[in-house]
């Protein structure tokens, strides 16, 4: 029996590629298999969670059961303030992300284009980068007690990955392409828009993707450090104060889902705009 099973497993394994290609549609994995692969681990964790709470291994006071969380979802969705808070956080993130990534993009391009400014700015930039973000909170509260401080907090964190990746992208533009521009007598503006920007754009997009997911993490921190502006982070903190751990978990799951969705869209965008670089990698 065991030997037969092993034999079967061996056959399945050796024919894996054939089976996969049979199930695939135009090189992409067959969707149910993709979903199955993606949900295997979360599903397992869920089952363990369920079993632990049923067997009272997890104390109800500290860690809610899946049932409590489902009920919690019902409760907050009927209330309405939950989605408002989530929306406020998303808008806050977008503001901070746009501000931070725009500034980051400009700094990154500047550092990449000018060796002088690179030498001038890089040391300060690297020093500032070492400051943990929460350490900015007291200073930002001095700047503004309102929405501005939270947006700035996110913007600072959103800025770094864009600066670094854009700079990296510009630095790595192949000199071969720049020479083609020289032969065609491109001026500085043409060189920038026809060679440097498109060539470095995939790298910039990687920075933007990292930046957006960092922004989403920071919004929770910003709302906890700099309260009374609403938002999912603040709501989560309030729920903790009232010992509503079920709602805390609801907030955590919501934060994870929104973050996942944002990352997913950024990844799609990255693939869309850097198709030429991705295919370059694949063909190697």
């Amino acid at each position: 029996m065991l030997s037969k099973f092993l034999l079967l497993a061996g056959i399945v394994h050796s024919q894996k590629n054939k089976i996969m290609s049979f199930l695939s549609v135009r090189g992409n994995k067959y969707l149910p298999i993709k979903v199955l692969e993606g949900t295997l681990l979360p599903g397992t964790i869920f089952v363990i969670w369920l079993i632990c709470s049923r067997l009272n291994i997890l104390s109800k006071d500290f860690f809610p059961s899946p049932g409590d969380v489902v009920n919690g979802f019902h409760e907050v969705l009927n209330d309405g303030s939950f989605l408002d808070n989530l929306g406020m956080s998303v808008i806050r993130v977008l503001k901070g992300f746009l501000l931070g990534s725009t500034v980051g993009f400009v700094i990154g391009i500047t550092l990449g284009m000018s060796r002088f400014l690179e030498k001038l700015i890089t040391p300060i930039f690297n020093a500032i980068r070492q400051v943990p973000l929460p350490a900015w909170a007291p200073l930002l509260v001095l700047v503004s007690l309102g929405e501005m401080s939270r947006v700035l907090f996110i913007a600072i964190g959103a800025c770094y990955p864009v600066v670094l990746n854009t700079f990296e992208g510009v630095k790595n533009v192949r000199n071969d392409y720049v020479e083609v521009g020289k032969v065609f007598k491109f001026n500085r503006v043409q060189r920038f828009f026809k060679i440097i920007l498109p060539s470095s754009f995939p790298s910039t997009l990687t920075g933007l993707r990292l930046s957006l997911s960092i922004s989403w993490m920071l919004v929770v921190a910003a709302e906890i450090f700099m309260t009374s502006g609403g938002g999912i982070g603040e709501m989560m903190w309030a729920c903790r104060e009232y010992s509503r751990m079920d709602l805390v978990v609801v907030c955590i799951i919501a934060i994870a889902l929104v973050g996942f969705t944002m990352n997913f869209f950024m990844q799609k965008m990255e693939m869309f705009f850097s198709f030429w670089r991705l295919t370059l990698k694949q063909s190697r």
């Binding site: 071969d176 083609v180 032969v183 060679i195 498109p198 030429w276």
Partner: peptide
């Protein structure tokens, strides 16, 4: 004066 390089140097994004 035009030049053709050994590696074609076409821009991969165009």
């Amino acid at each position: 004066r035009g030049i053709v390089f050994q590696d074609h140097r076409l821009f991969p994004w165009l």
